[in-house]
Structure formats: structure tokens, C-alpha cells
Design a protein around this nucleic acid. Sequence first.
DNA 1: TTAATTTAATTCGTTACTTCA
DNA 2: ACTGAAGTAACGAATTAAATT
Length: 139
Amino acid sequence: MEILSDNSACLELSIAMPGFSSSPSLQSGEGGVGTTNDLDLDINQVPSLGVQEEYESQNEGPPTKKLRLTKEQSRVLEESFRQNHTLNPKQKEGLSEQLMLKPRQVEVWFQNRRARYSEGFGIEVSLAEEDPGQSTWPA
DNA sequence: TTAATTTAATTCGTTACTTCA
DNA sequence: ACTGAAGTAACGAATTAAATT
């Protein structure tokens, strides 16, 4: 299976982003990622952190219903998403280790992010607010 | 307290690739 | 060497369900 994964990585990279590949267009870096969420999330993290720690420690416990990603985790994930909208196996592993999340959680996050991104035709609120002049869609 | 919103997680269907007969 | 079936992995879309506002 390792070979397969490796191949998948290449494939993902190949089809990573046909349209929005290398357009970092980052100016503020991380200040304007979650325009609205950023600050509000901060408050949310407090209780979530406790739950998460238990989640990380136990990991096997069935109780944990839904964890809330911390501000830091969201930020790192969003940064990665900006660079690549698709996850390489290595990236997934690295992020999961770095953020202390399960690879599947990272995968799910990216899937959800992509879905939301598509909803806005690639122009998400945060992005649109960051560079309004760059998102000049043809149609 | 309830309703609305947000979002992590799940399910289902599809596609692509590899292996084997 | 070529073809088709079976198996696996990943993704997108839709949906669910919990946490937050």
C-alpha cells in the first residue's frame, strides 16, 4: 500500500490545483485568515482545549462527540490549505503530528474546507477580503 | 431557553491505480 | 503482452449532529 500512497501523492500533486495553484497572494499572512472567526474562536478554544486534551490522551474513548479545533490548529491548517488545496500523505502525516490530530481529522478538515471553498467559487470571505483586486474572475 | 449558525464527522457514490488470474 | 475482475485509497457532494452565538 505504501507504493500506492506514494503514487497517490504524485497524482495529487499533478492535479493539485489547475486553476489556483501558485497564487499565494498572501499579504497579511495570518491576520486575515478567519476575519470573523479568528477573534471569536479564541473564546471557543478555552473549553475545547480541555476536551481535546482528553481526546488526544485517550483517543480510544468513544464519548468524544465532536471536538473543536483550536485557533492554532485552524491557522496551521488554513496556511497549508492556502499552499495546497490537496493533501499529500506526507503533509497529512506531518500536520497530524504537528497538530496532534488524527490523519483522518486533517483529511476531513481539508475536505470540508474544499467544499466551503467551492461554495464561494474559490473566493472565500477571508480571501476576498484580503485581496479583492486579485479575484478577477473571467465570468 | 430556543433558534440559527457554524463546522467536525459520517455516509454514499465515483474515480484512479495496482495486483492477479 | 493484453484484458477484465477484485481490492484499495482518496475525493466530492450531501447529510448529520454537536458546539457556539
